[in-house]
Computed example of a mutant assay.
Amino acid sequence: MNGHHDVHSDLHSEAGALPGEHPGRARNPVVKVRDLAWLEFEKPDLDDAEIFARAFGFTTALRTEAELHLRGTDPGSPCVLIRRGVRSRFIGPAFRAADSADLLRLAEVGGSSPAPLPETLSGYAVDLRDPNGLRVRVVADVGVLAELPAQQPLTINTWHDVARVGAVQRPPRAPARVQRLGHVVVQTTRYRQTLDWYLEHLGLIVSDFLYHGGRRERGPVMSFIRCDLGGTPTDHHTLALMLGPADKYVHSAYQVSDLDALAAGGEYLRENGFRRSWGIGRHIQGSQIFDYWRDPDGFMVEHFTDGDLFDNTLEPGWAPMTASGLSQWGPPVTKDFLGLAPVGAALRELRAFATALREDNEFDLHRLRGHLKVANS
């Protein structure tokens, strides 16, 4: 033995990179964003959107005839901005810059000129387009909403650590109070180009790569990407990118206090007629306890708790991508989560396969076979 310790052993993924594989970070990024600020959507029915949002655990920060802002209990900006539109669509993410000087740097490499945000948000923004045409907004000096009373985690007894005596556990079957926005997952037909764009422009770094089993030499098809805050630990992923037959939003995730809040909140959603997509379980990459739901417009949203945190010293892990490998425990992954149900979603996926194979992108026949193998694993 040479005494070398593999930092990935029993830590967060199967193994580290092989020689010549993607390093998972840019040498000299334009800026290093600090976090996700919010996500922006358009929806035709703000009433339905607000009803679901309250059941999911958001607090309304602003409501007008044309706009809905949703927040968590943590101080900061709203988590989600929804504007009235003729159809439901994801507009794009907003990332928080370290300072306003970063906006000038991004403007010099193809972003718009820094422009003031509406008074309801304050601050300034630069808009960029990623290789898929998705609008990516970077903001600075935005207003800070005051902290709200948070849902406290339950006091838990373990065998040798008794913290609760003479009291019972009765978590209310009520909405789990969202604390903050955690991450967003986006699918792209130009995965490698898009990955490099986010690393080079926003200074994000990869926590984990996934590749199609038996095809590692063709490179990764998914990456879990975190912010680079130096020695300060941050979420395992703030953004996740995956190769697929269409450029689209996949899901977004919002932190709650603990497993009981997540589970009881899920029961509240179920009893109020909302549709679970997949859960409850615990992920492998990121380790979060998860529960996925569909809002009235079909967007997938996740409650999560107990996720991994890493500083910038951890190098990317590499692991094969399988459907069964998406969780350590929990029910089998559903067709709804994979986008293969209901029938309308499956038909859209088939049309996307046919379109992608006719166009110039990374989703070729080899990737299609790997994609189908994952879905059937």
Rank of each mutant, 00 (worst) to 15 (best):
D360C: 01
Y292F: 13
E21Y: 06
G279V: 02
T64V: 04
D208W: 01
P78L: 03
A107F: 05
F209P: 07
H183N: 13
V301I: 15
V138D: 11
A246Q: 12
P118N: 11
E50N: 07
A115V: 09
E67G: 04
A176E: 09
P75E: 12
L368S: 04
W278K: 00
R215Y: 00
A101P: 01
A174M: 03
L202H: 03
R129D: 10
E65P: 02
L117R: 13
L195D: 09
P131T: 01
P172E: 11
E108A: 15
F90E: 13
E67W: 01
T334R: 03
A240Y: 05
V301Y: 09
G182R: 02
A345Y: 02
G85M: 07
A346H: 04
D247E: 11
D308I: 10
E65G: 11
N272G: 10
A98Y: 00
E40D: 12
A176N: 08
D102T: 06
D311E: 11
D308P: 07
P233D: 12
L243A: 12
A125C: 05
Y292L: 00
G330S: 09
D295S: 12
S377N: 09
W318K: 09
G219S: 04
L314Y: 10
I225S: 06
I51F: 00
P175T: 09
D311L: 07
L121S: 01
H5G: 03
H201T: 15
L195H: 15
P342W: 07
G92F: 05
